[in-house]
Each structure stands twice: as C-alpha cells, then as structure tokens.
Amino acid sequence: MIDPVLSLRDAKLALDANAGRVEILHGIDLDIRAGETVGLTGPSGSGKSSLLMIMGGLERATGGTVMALGHDLTALGEDALARFRLKHMGVVFQSFHLIPTMTALENVATPLELAGAADAFDRAEAELTAVGLSHRLDHYPSQLSGGEQQRVALARAAAPRPAILLADEPTGNLDGPTGEAIMDMLFGLRDRHGATLVLVTHAPELAARCDRQIRLRDGRLDTLSEAAE
C-alpha cells in the first residue's frame, strides 16, 4: 500500500468555551492516500471543518497524532507549521479570506514570494489567467464578485503546487452556477497538478464527485463509503 499523505490516529480536539470545555473531535482514525479526493460531509456542528483545520495545522489537535507527508503536525511549532503549509498545502475557505489591502495578483503572489520564488508575479499571473481572471489582476477584493474572489483564493492555494489541497465549503457562499464553476476549477486544478484534495461540503452532489466520502456525526466518523467511479 502507498504511504498515506495524511494519517490521523486517535485525533482529538477540545476547545475552551465560555460554557466550559467542548469536545469537538473524539478520536479520529483516518488515512488519506496521495492523489485521492476525499469529501467530508456531515450535519452542521459535526466537526468536519475542525477536522480539516487540524489536517492543515491551522488548529492543533489536543490529542492523538496528525501525520502529514511524514511530519507530525501536533509536534510542530506555529512557524514550522506555517513553513510546512508553504511547501505542501493550499487552503480554500468558504469566505475566500483574501487580504483586503492587496490586489488579486498580490494575493496570489504572496505564498510564492514567501517561498522565495523569483518569478512569483509571473506565476501568479499565469495562475489567475488559468482561472479566467487575467482582466482582474489589479483589482482589490472589494472590487470583485464573490465568485471572482473565490477564484482568486483557488489560484492562491494552487499557485505553489501543493501536494495537499484543503477546501472548506468553497461554494458555501456562492450561487449554484457559480459554485459549480468553482468546483470544476478546483477539480481541474487537482487533476492538472495531481494533488490530494480534501473537501468539506454540505452538497451531496459535490461529495459524490470525490473518490471517497467520509461522513462525520458528533465528532466521530460515521460511515466510510467509496464513491463509485
């Protein structure tokens, strides 16, 4: 068997809230193989976004281990996690999360620059052209529609050619046709670069496009199902 790119063992997450400590994930065991597309589904509050966040090192698991490409994310410091994402991961959010003080081009170039790429801007431009935004390079996020903002976010996540793409309800804030176009792009990017894609979604038809669907309920894995090819 090929080594999994993501491997969770008894992964737990508990957060301190005003009302006391809340257990969000209760010991998740999960392996995701290289090149696989995985859909995380489940009702609201089931912990699917939290699971995605600990896979990306954006949230630290409070128990168990989270291995990504052979690195234990729970053992890495804040900056080491940032460097790890820079090299290996791209993240897309429901609310796009572009930096409002930067143009589309600058937003996409930022991770490339952080990685020290000399041709950061050329690559960023190529990436934006690939998502159909060559005419919006110098626009600020506030000057773009929701669909356009999400395309910039996709370009930004994909530009450094990450091995793992994480997407947290990337079409949640978009209308049907726009969301569909974004999904086409996301899967297109994955196909072109051969990245592993983990996708959180409420939409059954999106989950159905993935190689595998994982359903969560109350912070536990509910059903494992292989999507029909």
Partner: peptide
C-alpha cells in the same frame, strides 16, 4: 485576520 491568512499561506510569525 491578515496574520491568520498569512499564516495559512505559509508566513512565519
């Protein structure tokens, strides 16, 4: 917010 996004795309503190 900016710091969070920057960390996500790989910037160190």
């Amino acid at each position: 917010f900016e710091a969070a996004v920057l960390k996500t795309v790989g910037a160190t503190r």
